[in-house]
Design a protein around this nucleic acid. Sequence first.
DNA 1: CATACATGCAATTAAAAGGTTGCATTTGTC
DNA 2: GACAAATGCAACCTTTTAATTGCATGTATG
Lengths: 122, 122
Amino acid sequence: MSPRPNSPSKKAPLKNSALRNSAPIFAALGDKTRLRLIAVLCAGGAMSIARLTSGTQITRQAVTKHLHVLADAGLVRDTKVGRERLWEFEPTHLEEARRSLDVIAQQWDHALNKLKMAVERT
Amino acid sequence: MSPRPNSPSKKAPLKNSALRNSAPIFAALGDKTRLRLIAVLCAGGAMSIARLTSGTQITRQAVTKHLHVLADAGLVRDTKVGRERLWEFEPTHLEEARRSLDVIAQQWDHALNKLKMAVERT
DNA sequence: CATACATGCAATTAAAAGGTTGCATTTGTC
DNA sequence: GACAAATGCAACCTTTTAATTGCATGTATG
């Protein structure tokens, strides 16, 4: 056979579907402001936009946009209460992301073991 | 006291530093192509760019750029071998990200427990 | 009902991200 | 040495993203 570049892997690389789905979640988490929002909401319960904005340098509208990004990724949820809107953490999709990282880590360990055994067999 | 918006939290929201550092890692993971690269490298060991590109729709240069993004986040490492450059998964920083998600999840559980106890006390 | 507070909506802007094309460079092999 | 393979580099383009400003709308409350 000629040494032409092969396809990355003959077998399916891994549970690809689960991973592909979590890309948007990681993208939503991949911003320090949003990560802070998640942390604050997660520890402090439901909060209004004004409250989430106070103490930061950015505008209320910027915070609003970030909240919508998080909402699109299913990481937060909002409810209208009187004249304010309360935002709260939604743990389901974060768990998904957590599982994805676990899958990758497991895959890695598995690959390491195979390598180790191959070496010992030598 | 007037009901002016308070700062999000009096106590430090949580181990903020650890979280802030993992934002770039999540950002790097927040793209389906890069997530695929990680998965492939993680399961298949070190691979050349040509091999990582074959079987995809995008260009070799696009793959190269994604690999550099991953490298900047410390998720992959490269070595030059002959005329090709081999890229391999680097698990350290992924573990960091995993811990960050764990921290958030724990914080959330803790908040839920406090809420539950407060309700039961009523 | 007038006023202040909380938010919503729209237009705009600057920068970054994702991707491509074309050409140069390095390296293995006949 | 000639040629093909693997990659590097640079310019360029299009779309998204992060953030702002200004104004409109809804809602408590004295």
